[in-house]
Design a binder for these strands. Structure first.
Lengths: 225, 225
DNA sequence: ACCTGAACACCGTTCAAGT
DNA sequence: ACCTGAACACCGTTCAAGT
């Protein structure tokens, strides 16, 4: 409760992507390093929330009371810092995907989840763009720090979409990644061109409408021509 | 033919927004100023095409053979430079809107135009984001240099959408600006996360599908409940 | 093992001095 | 009326020197 947004547990022993060294086992850090890392995360969260994802890094280091070199030691790129901040939210989205897989109406499950994805991508200015960029950079050598989180999100989305498709409620010809991109771009639009309060819901409803199949009219055959 | 992309005629006497001084009449410039301005535009077009909309301005000035101050004198902001470059394309879009208003199927006219809008917004990296940002910044005091172009685009889109709506082919509850934003975000997605060649068409088809009403089934009444 | 901050690079923007 | 470029500000990133 002290900080309502502890982004990552500082030592997640089974974090699949945290370890640069022996994968899987993130060795214990020195006490001051742990403290510095956590301070940086706390300050960065505030800075990104206030100023967006491009907030100056030296500001963050200074406000956290560490040298700029320490920031770079813990987070070799801005993206790595962003990833550490959103990792908790990504985990939440994965969990929610499993929960919502139990929804009676599979399309409603997908709809709710996409809405949570949009909220997630709206956490700070610039995040939606970073997410989409990570999604479109799978084949590069310099792997982005957000790639793993991005893959998790796409996986979670895919599970719900597979279910909706099996139930005949999702169009067979839509690309799963397209749906994730479109939903993320709803967050991006709302961020750059906020027009009114219903905008996010309206746009998301449009996306869902476009990719879904109406509830079966008679449960037998429904020729669509 | 010397430069296949002369972005603006250097002295458009009736350009509605070019004149900072007496509106409407852009006074004749000195010969060297005209030349410098045109050189800057030529170089900027190349630079933006190659490196995206964030290409360094001093590079552009140097390659154009002028001092950086000259660039700023002609284009007080990066956006002003971008606007000058796309103004021709915006005019084209407005003309095309009028032409396509003659299409037999009003929905197809809209579809074609939106496809051209996407191509326009894809001209250089970063442009789609700039367009959406301009569209969402109408109420600010520091008016963006792209605002006028953006308004023209929205106007052109609105004409085609009004026509489609009158013909009963566009859903009554969709916001015109939403459609423009969604189409532009298609360009943005393709730019950041290019997955395959059909992506743009696929995404745009989704958007159209979401906002359109299927061709009237029997021409009489079609209760939607 | 970790921290520090000076040093460098890069880019945007202004403005005094010129023609 | 227009051009120039030095000067300043700002930010990212590295790395030698420390503990």
């Amino acid at each position: 409760m002290s900080s309502d947004a502890t982004p990552t547990s500082t030592t997640a022993p089974t974090d699949p992507t945290a370890g640069d060294p022996a994968p899987g086992a993130s060795r214990p850090r020195r006490a001051d390093a742990r403290r510095n890392r956590q301070r940086l995360l706390d300050v960065a969260l505030t800075a990104f929330t206030e100023q967006g994802i491009d907030a100056p890094l030296d500001d963050i280091a200074r406000r956290a009371g560490v040298g700029i070199g320490t920031l770079y030691r813990h987070f070799p790129s801005r993206e790595a810092l962003v990833d550490a901040l959103i990792r908790g939210g990504v985990d939440d989205l994965c969990r929610r995907s499993d929960e919502l897989a139990g929804t009676a109406d599979p399309l409603e499950g997908l709809a709710r989840w996409l809405r949570e994805l949009v909220d997630h991508a709206s956490r700070f200015r610039g995040l939606a763009a970073a997410i989409v960029a990570a999604g479109g950079r799978v084949h590069e050598r310099h792997e982005g720090a957000l790639d793993a989180s991005c893959a998790l999100v796409h996986g979670a989305a895919g599970r719900l979409m597979g279910r909706a498709r099996e139930a005949g409620r999702l169009r067979g010809d839509v690309d799963d990644a397209d749906v994730v991109d479109m939903a993320t771009s709803v967050a991006w639009i709302t961020e750059h061109a906020p027009r009114d309060d219903q905008q996010t819901d309206r746009l998301l409803a449009l996306v869902l409408d476009a990719v879904s199949v109406p509830a079966a009219p008679r449960a037998s055959e429904a020729r669509e021509r």
